[in-house]
Simulated scan of single mutants.
Amino acid sequence: MERGTLIEHEGRPAVRFERHYRHSAQRVWAAITQPDELAHWFPSAVRMSAEVGGAIEFTEDPNVAPGTGTILAYQPPHRLAYSWGDDELHFDLVEDGAGGCVLTMVHVLAARDTAARTAAGWTICLAELDKQLAGENPAGPHSADAQPWRPVYDEYVAAGMPSGAPIPGMTD
């Protein structure tokens, strides 16, 4: 499983992921923007106004209270960015010249100590996205069929990813 890396994004800590798909940017764009597709891999139900400055709503995540954000970039089918509370998510899709594309996702963090927690969560979610794009119709990152989160988190911590932020729904 491909892991995320800690980077700096405009002076803020961020976790970066890159995935290569045998699908067009248009197909992957649908998976990252359409509510019926997001339901299979994203940690929350999402509703968005598809325009820069539009609102985005996040609900139904069992570990996080409902929240809102603002669309920061909307350039179908290549660039999407939005705020999520004090964090930001950036998705970039680039055609690979062979009929597929490369997805780069950057989660800009409000706090450095959330890096391991966030990276583990997205590792699970992106594995579910991989299944969705492979036609497997996954039940989502919170389902019993998804990879367990805790071992992935422990691997990130062991590798030195900043940690220590509270983990919703868990006590240590």
Rank of each mutant, 00 (worst) to 15 (best):
G4R: 08
W149L: 13
A81L: 07
G54F: 08
E51C: 06
Q26H: 07
R47P: 09
A159G: 00
T104S: 13
T59P: 05
F17S: 02
Y21P: 12
T33P: 11
S44C: 14
A98E: 15
K131T: 03
D130Y: 03
V102D: 11
A39P: 05
E88T: 03
A139V: 07
Y156C: 05
A116Y: 08
W149N: 07
A111P: 01
E95P: 04
G135H: 10
W84G: 10
A111R: 13
G140M: 07
A119C: 09
T118S: 13
Y74N: 00
A111L: 14
A45R: 14
C101K: 04
P13R: 03
H40Q: 15
G97Y: 12
G4H: 07
Y74T: 04
T68G: 14
H23P: 08
A73C: 00
H23C: 15
G164Q: 04
A127Q: 10
R3K: 13
T114Q: 13
D113Q: 11
H20S: 13
V52G: 01
W29E: 13
A25R: 01
H40E: 12
A39K: 15
R12N: 13
E37R: 15
I56P: 02
D61C: 13
T118F: 08
A14P: 14
G67T: 06
S143A: 14
L126V: 02
V94F: 07
G53Q: 01
R47C: 05
G4L: 02
Q34D: 15
A81V: 04
P138A: 09
S44H: 15
A81P: 07
L93G: 02
V157R: 05
G54H: 02
L126K: 01
L109P: 01
L6K: 10
P151E: 00
P62K: 05
A139E: 11
S44F: 15
G11D: 07
P77E: 05
V64R: 06
E2S: 11
R16G: 05
G164W: 00
T123S: 14
A116G: 03
D86N: 15
S163P: 02
P151D: 00
H20W: 06
A165S: 10
P13A: 06
